[in-house]
Design a binder for these strands. Structure first.
Lengths: 149, 149
DNA sequence: ACGTAGTAGTTGCAGACGCATCGATATAGA
DNA sequence: TCTATATCGATGCGTCTGCAACTACTACGT
């Protein structure tokens, strides 16, 4: 025991806090987005990531990174969203292995409809987390990390 | 747009950062724990939560909260670990609906064997995250939240 | 005592995930 | 040029998950 073990314990505690906060937010978002818009959190995340590229497209692998998903899961996720007409696959000419994905008008529309739900639930979840002593400091840190407007 | 929208955007950005960091750590832990000890992250989390109760037991619902899992997933998770002889179910007398779970000797042994892997990978993942500009501040905040020794 | 909620845990079911593998394309070296 | 290696995305397979429905039990109001 000593300084070395303290560091290990601090990391473990931090990770537990992070996981707990993530789980809380993720669960509530999952329920609300599913109920109100038929979207899962990863699906929303992908649509949101695409929209933030603003007119540009993303490759499957970038999408996988953005959503912290395996490439196989990404394939199927994109297929699901494509089947629903929310995005399109575009073969790219310069690298014929690559596949770009792009939001459709319907995709943008659904995303904009879901965003208020997302933002509201996120706010509620963070407020709820702030009431839990173990999570409160991390919530505060989350706000503080943003550039001061 | 204005102050109100800024708050929304700050929250969204914070959540994306949190999710990204969680995904990074979770993925690496998952791979290492599975490969070296045949444990998933939630399984490790449950064993760890039980051990930190130190001789005491936890009810299914507490376990579900600790692991951010649904009660059905918890049932099956406990069944898996019980089948492997890592913990035991104990019917409790005062509330006959309740079921306590308790680590077995084998469970404690596996947990102690897995802990070094867990701690090492966690340290590596955090170090890796620190190299990513978007994640670095949150990593720092994670350490700062701990009580100063 | 009794019926009504409310809570704890389990199970059927359908959906989503990761790993390993594979075909197709790109890149580098002899 | 031709082969070796690496990368990109898709697919088979087994596993895990949440929701909804169910049983068993407790607690409350009359």
């Amino acid at each position: 025991m000593g300084i070395r073990d303290d560091a290990v314990e601090i990391r473990a505690r931090g990770w537990r806090t992070l996981a707990a906060l993530h789980g809380l937010i993720d669960t509530e978002l999952e329920r609300s987005l599913a109920r109100e818009h038929g979207l899962s959190v990863v699906e929303f995340t992908v649509l949101d990531a695409l929209s933030r590229q603003d007119g540009w497209h993303m490759r499957m692998r970038q999408l996988a990174r953005a959503a912290a998903l395996s490439s196989s899961a990404t394939t199927r996720l994109v297929t699901r969203l494509e089947d629903r007409g929310l995005l399109t696959r575009i073969l790219c000419a310069d690298d014929r292995r690559g596949i770009y994905t792009e939001l459709t008008a319907a995709g943008e529309k659904l995303l904009e409809a879901a965003r208020p739900t997302h933002d509201r639930v996120l706010e509620e979840a963070l407020a709820e987390a702030r009431e839990i002593p173990e999570l409160a400091p991390l919530v505060t840190a989350l706000y503080a990390d943003a550039p001061v407007a």
